[in-house]
């Protein structure tokens, strides 16, 4: 089973248009042994990233899409964002409510110097069902929204915004 392709948050894109400078993306990796960073368990099924070998690639792809759509992606920029995915988990076993969490550390290198290092965490919960045929697709659909929420926090972080300038 695969997570749905990431769909950019237009609120994030419109914020980036106002606050970000042209930026490049560096390496995105996973913390070894971090929960769900390679595959997320959903009631006995395993949900993998539709891009790359793990969810760091999904996270990098999400940043790429939002920066690109905002016109703020420049692979030649001296400002480079890198990421380390620490946690990435969905608890889909609940009979009426399920939840998910994602946590990642982001770094900004500007002109060769580290200007920002910070960890962001997003969590969500949603109504679910006893039946896997409803609960599993619903959990699957929540994953891109969880990533969107993480990026909303990152793009809105004043220290992060300052580091990009």
């Amino acid at each position: 089973m695969q997570a749905p392709p990431y769909q950019p948050s237009l609120d994030n894109v419109e914020l980036l248009k106002k606050t970000a400078s042209p930026t490049a993306l560096g390496s995105f990796t996973v913390q070894a042994g971090g929960p769900g960073v390679v595959a997320i368990g959903l009631r006995g099924s395993s949900m993998n990233s539709p891009v790359g070998a793990d969810y760091a690639a999904y996270l990098a792809g999400a940043l790429y899409q939002e920066l690109q759509l905002a016109g703020k992606l420049n692979p030649k920029s001296n400002v480079v964002i890198t990421g380390l995915l620490l946690k990435n988990d969905i608890a889909a076993g609940g009979l009426s409510t399920n939840s998910g969490e994602i946590e990642a550390q982001f770094t900004v290198i500007n002109g060769g110097q580290e200007r920002y290092r910070g960890t962001h965490r997003a969590e969500m919960s949603w109504e679910s069902s006893l039946f896997g045929a409803v609960a599993i697709p619903k959990a699957q659909q929540q994953y891109p929204l969880l990533v969107q929420k993480l990026l909303t926090q990152l793009w809105a972080d004043a220290r992060f915004q300052a580091a990009l300038k």
Partner: peptide, 16 residues
């Protein structure tokens, strides 16, 4: 209950 229950979907095209 099952008869009245719809499976959730999202429309998520590959934007790339």
């Amino acid at each position: 209950w099952l008869g009245g229950c719809a499976h959730p979907l999202t429309l998520s095209p590959n934007l790339a």
